[in-house]
Amino acid sequence: MESELALLRRQVNPDLLADLEQQVDSERAANARLTEELEKRAAPLDAKPNPDCRDMVAAYLRQSGFDGLFCEECGCSVDDLMPCGENDWVWSCQAGYKKPGCTDACGQGCDFHIVPKASKDHPRQLGSAQ
């Protein structure tokens, strides 16, 4: 088998072999990153044996790639979800994406706003958070 392997190595183009090895290494690294991301996203679900609604909403937002919730009154990051408590208007919140900074229309000096994907680049931002 050693002699067959030596024969095959002489027949293979060294540049092609190097390219293939680089491609395999790149795919291994990508797989490692994806595995890490999957484990990170699954962790909130495994964290509590009986998660409450806030935990379940946070896990869904993270798994779906959202940054938080917003409604006309406010917005909150998935890391500080629903600080408003159990007000009736919490049920009108929608999933959205974090956009850094504050608008002139808001003017409250917010660190970010949570906005719908369709409006991510739109100047009008909903759901401010300070």
Rank of each mutant, 00 (worst) to 15 (best):
A58V: 01
D46G: 09
L8W: 11
P51M: 10
V90N: 00
G68T: 01
Q108W: 00
D104W: 10
C53H: 08
P100D: 13
A42S: 07
L126D: 13
L45N: 08
G96E: 08
G101F: 03
A42I: 09
A105S: 12
G109Y: 00
A47P: 04
D111C: 05
E27V: 09
A58G: 01
D46H: 06
S92P: 01
V24L: 14
R10V: 12
R54T: 10
S92C: 08
P14I: 09
Q23W: 09
R9Q: 14
D67I: 00
N87L: 12
V90Q: 00
E37A: 11
W91D: 11
L38M: 07
P83A: 06
S64P: 00
N50A: 15
C76F: 11
D55E: 14
E72Q: 04
D15G: 11
I114Q: 05
D121W: 00
K117H: 06
G96P: 05
L5R: 03
N13V: 07
K40I: 10
P44Y: 01
V57K: 04
G85Q: 06
A95F: 06
N13Q: 06
S77D: 15
G68P: 02
R10G: 10
M56E: 14
D121A: 02
D19L: 09
R9S: 14
R124K: 13
V12A: 10
L20I: 12
N13S: 13
S77T: 06
P100Q: 09
Y97I: 14
C71P: 02
L126F: 13
A118D: 05
F70D: 03
I114K: 03
P49A: 15
C74S: 15
C93F: 08
K48T: 15
C106G: 04
E73W: 01
P49Q: 11
P123A: 04
C76P: 10
E39C: 04
C102P: 00
P123I: 02
G75I: 02
A30I: 01
R62L: 15
C84I: 14
A129M: 05
D19E: 13
Y97N: 04
T103H: 01
Q63A: 15
N31R: 09
C110E: 05
T35E: 08
L5G: 00
G101L: 02
Q11F: 03
C84V: 15
Q94L: 11
K48V: 15
Q130P: 12
K99W: 06
A95E: 04
P123Q: 01
K48I: 14
M56D: 08
R10M: 13
E72C: 02
K48S: 15
D19Q: 12
D46K: 11
Y97G: 07
A32F: 01
F66I: 00
Q108R: 04
R54K: 06
Y97C: 08
P83L: 09
M1V: 12
C110V: 02
A47E: 11
D79F: 10
D80C: 12
E73C: 05
